[in-house]
Simulated scan of single mutants.
Amino acid sequence: MEISRTDEPETRILEINLISAQDLNKIRPIRRMHTYVLAWVDPRTRLRSDLDRVGGENPTWNDKFLFRVSEDFINADISAVQIQIYAVGYIRDNFVGTVRYILSSSSPRSDGIPCFSALHIRRRSGRVQGVLNIAATVFRGSDFPSLSGISAICVRDLIGKNNKTPRDVGSKRSEHAASKEAAESSCNLYCQEKSSFTTITVFRESVVMAG
């Protein structure tokens, strides 16, 4: 997986946990939607979730993404994480909806405790349909020196559980091939039952032991 790097000295680690969604717009003629999520702070570095195969219009992903951002970004009124939901198609993947998560709307905490939000999902027409459930947590970048220079990464990549290279979304392929691709995507959750704080703490302790 290609990792973007930055040399910003004073930064924060913004963790976004994409939990689930309800009442997504039904894409026809797909019998059961297989959905995934793209998320980014900088559009040049987009992270992709694992594929939900069983939830249909009510998927569950439980994927965690880490973004290195500035203190000004955390405090700005208009700073946001852009999120798009897609359904795997036979010829191309279908846009389901989008969410713009504005940080100031929930003021995520920096003490390792997630801040949960339920956000409206908007279709391409602008109509609201569905709810996205997410959690956000802010950590001090200096607490995790091994993340120095990394601008965005999936938690599973971070702990080295999957070294597969994700492919571009939206290419022409069969639903079966797309499902297999997404299953091998590097953007999978390390442990669905761990809290944001526990996940980061375990990684930090492993780095100390390795050193």
Rank of each mutant, 00 (worst) to 15 (best):
175 E>A: 02
182 A>V: 02
189 L>V: 13
185 S>W: 02
190 Y>K: 01
181 E>N: 00
163 N>D: 15
188 N>H: 01
177 A>L: 05
176 H>Y: 11
172 K>D: 13
166 P>L: 12
171 S>G: 06
175 E>P: 00
172 K>H: 06
170 G>C: 08
176 H>P: 00
186 S>A: 11
175 E>M: 06
178 A>G: 12
181 E>T: 02
188 N>E: 10
170 G>S: 08
167 R>V: 15
171 S>F: 08
186 S>G: 12
193 E>C: 04
176 H>I: 08
191 C>A: 06
164 K>R: 11
176 H>F: 10
192 Q>D: 07
174 S>G: 15
182 A>G: 04
162 N>Y: 00
164 K>I: 14
163 N>I: 14
173 R>Q: 06
167 R>D: 10
177 A>V: 05
183 A>I: 12
188 N>G: 10
167 R>T: 14
174 S>H: 08
185 S>L: 07
184 E>I: 13
168 D>M: 11
180 K>C: 10
191 C>R: 07
191 C>K: 14
167 R>L: 15
190 Y>C: 05
167 R>H: 09
189 L>K: 09
180 K>H: 10
173 R>E: 11
170 G>R: 08
176 H>C: 02
185 S>C: 09
171 S>N: 09
173 R>F: 01
184 E>P: 01
171 S>P: 01
185 S>G: 13
191 C>M: 07
171 S>K: 09
178 A>V: 01
180 K>M: 13
168 D>K: 12
192 Q>N: 08
171 S>V: 14
177 A>F: 03
166 P>N: 08
175 E>W: 03
192 Q>Y: 05
163 N>G: 14
180 K>E: 12
191 C>Q: 10
165 T>Q: 09
191 C>H: 08
190 Y>R: 05
193 E>R: 03
180 K>P: 00
169 V>F: 09
184 E>Y: 04
164 K>A: 15
165 T>A: 13
163 N>R: 00
173 R>S: 07
189 L>Y: 04
184 E>Q: 09
178 A>S: 13
182 A>H: 00
174 S>K: 04
188 N>W: 07
162 N>G: 02
190 Y>F: 03
190 Y>G: 02
184 E>W: 06
182 A>N: 03
169 V>P: 01
166 P>S: 14
181 E>Q: 04
166 P>Q: 08
175 E>G: 01
170 G>E: 12
181 E>F: 04
175 E>S: 04
162 N>I: 12
169 V>A: 15
192 Q>A: 13
182 A>T: 05
191 C>L: 07
173 R>I: 02
183 A>Q: 12
193 E>N: 05
163 N>H: 08
169 V>C: 09
167 R>E: 10
185 S>V: 03
193 E>T: 14
162 N>V: 11
185 S>I: 06
180 K>T: 14
175 E>F: 02
174 S>E: 11
162 N>C: 06
183 A>L: 12
168 D>E: 09
188 N>Q: 07
186 S>W: 00
164 K>G: 01
190 Y>V: 07
176 H>K: 03
184 E>L: 13
166 P>Y: 11
193 E>K: 01
174 S>V: 03
